[in-house]
Design a protein around this nucleic acid. Sequence first.
DNA 1: GTAGTTATGGACCGATTGGTTCATAATGAA
DNA 2: TTCATTATGAACCAATCGGTCCATAACTAC
Lengths: 198, 198
Amino acid sequence: MARPVEFDRDAALDAAIKLFWSQGYSATPLAQLLEGMGIGRSSFYASFGDKRSLFVEVLELFAARTQKIFAESRRPEDVLGTVRRFFERTLLQVPRSRSSRGCLMVNTILELAEVDAELCAQAASALGRMEADFEACFAEAQQAGRYPKDQPAAALASHVMLLNQGLRVASRKRVSRAKLQSEIDLSLSFLHPKRIPS
Amino acid sequence: MARPVEFDRDAALDAAIKLFWSQGYSATPLAQLLEGMGIGRSSFYASFGDKRSLFVEVLELFAARTQKIFAESRRPEDVLGTVRRFFERTLLQVPRSRSSRGCLMVNTILELAEVDAELCAQAASALGRMEADFEACFAEAQQAGRYPKDQPAAALASHVMLLNQGLRVASRKRVSRAKLQSEIDLSLSFLHPKRIPS
DNA sequence: GTAGTTATGGACCGATTGGTTCATAATGAA
DNA sequence: TTCATTATGAACCAATCGGTCCATAACTAC
């Protein structure tokens, strides 16, 4: 009953993710978004409302995708394997151009901590959900006796998120894949239960 | 032989550090710098050349101060204690307003990775010097037989930097002191040599 | 066809950005 | 006092920022 939209909304969102992810929120001017998304100003404001609103949507979508990768990496019988797979899939088994973008949530927290509390809270909340997922993994493994209980699952999950944040920073300074790999290996070796003869 | 400067250059630099540190490079407008530093535009451009030049100077100064804290934390006979002291002095034994700023080098790398390669390289280089220092600590301890040699000192130092980056991100999302403390404790407990009976 | 509805492109807007210019003020040397 | 030198404050600048407005295009229902 009216003129149809001429662009692919999902494709446009994809382009927006790429831009925000690599350059950050403030460093990505509207003009660049329009060019990357392949749409005009009017269409932009009609479909996405606002630069900030678009960013909210992008952040949400990014978090959902990350959550999906986590879900695909998860294997109930192997906590540390889950952690390893998640790290390797997001940092090593992707083109360098992608891994060097780090994590949008982490980037956002650092960029907007003192600038936009709401966006920052949204990013932190997404990271919080990831942490809760990791905690559930550890708790499950501990219940099943596959992981030592001398550290609470929450603390272990928190530490995994610490490693995650550290790795994202590292990946943004274009360190070599090999170094990233050995960082992952060493971090996981520390997490491996040491069987101390009783 | 000419009109003397009316402001304290070091104090002005201090104010600039605080602003860049908490808000980032692009999110800190010149007007705010001028107000914070307590000087006028002309004096600013006469003394610091440029917003970007000022940032270079700030970054250098910040790195030097961080290096100093490291040096004060260093105790040759105790690597892990050195690491712990460095973390605790920069994250716990400071007002929250300060620790919640994270680390200027880390912040800069995340903010400017795809925007200003030079500034980013400068920040990365400063982090690299820290890593080298940590490596020297581990190497020394290993030579003296106070730390196991099953991991190369470089890898250990690299891991400490990973923890550092992770902690800075965590501190920027205003997590409680208690949580920061336990993150530090757990990370260090993983680094503690396990005495496996031979 | 015409009417009603929505999408689009381009002109336009005020605000803010970092940076420059210049007249003037403050000093030391003569 | 006078001159040379440098610091300062205010006015000014072009460029860019995100956002709005409006005439027109493209479609469906009738």
